[in-house]
Amino acid sequence: MRGSLLIVPLLWTQSAHAHGIAGNRYFAGTMTIDDPAVADELILPNFSYLPFPAQGSNVTESRINGAFARLLTPTLAFTIDSAWVHQNWPIGRTSGFDKTNIGLKYEAFRDNRHEALVSVGLAWGIAHSGAVAIGADAPDTIQPGIFVGKGFGDLPDSLSWLRPFAVTASFVDEVPLGSVGRALAPNPATGRFDTILPRAVETLHWGISLQYSTLYLTKRFDRGPPKDEPLNQLVPLVEFRFDSPRGQTTAATANPGFAYVAVAWQVAAEAIIPLNRAGGTGPGFRAQLLIFLDDFMPALFGKPLLSGRPARSQIAW
Rank of each mutant, 00 (worst) to 15 (best):
M31T: 01
A22L: 10
G56P: 12
R25K: 11
G56L: 09
P45F: 14
F27R: 00
S57I: 06
Q55P: 05
Y49E: 05
H19P: 02
I21V: 15
I33V: 12
L42D: 04
Q55S: 11
N24F: 08
A28W: 02
D35S: 15
A16K: 05
I33K: 00
F47P: 02
G56A: 07
G20F: 03
G23T: 03
F52H: 10
I64D: 04
N58A: 12
E61C: 06
Q55D: 09
D34R: 07
A28K: 03
G20T: 02
T60N: 15
R25S: 07
I43A: 09
D40Y: 04
L50I: 08
R25Y: 04
S48H: 02
H17N: 15
S48Y: 02
R25M: 09
V38Q: 03
F27V: 01
A69E: 04
Y26N: 15
S62W: 13
N58L: 13
H17A: 15
F68M: 10
S62E: 14
A54P: 00
P53M: 04
A54S: 10
F68N: 05
A16W: 10
S57T: 14
D40L: 07
I43Q: 12
V59H: 02
H19W: 11
V38F: 06
F27A: 00
A28Q: 07
I43T: 13
P45W: 14
E61S: 15
P51F: 07
G20D: 01
I33W: 00
D35M: 04
H19G: 11
Y49S: 08
Y26F: 13
N65E: 12
R25L: 08
L44G: 07
T32N: 09
V38Y: 03
E61H: 01
L44E: 03
A39I: 04
H19K: 11
A39L: 06
A67E: 12
I21A: 06
S48K: 01
F47Y: 15
G66R: 04
I43L: 12
A54Y: 08
R63I: 14
L71Q: 00
A37E: 13
E41D: 13
A28F: 06
I33P: 00
F27S: 02
I64F: 13
V59D: 01
L50F: 05
F52M: 09
I64N: 10
T73Q: 08
Y49G: 01
P36A: 05
F27N: 00
Y49Q: 07
A67K: 11
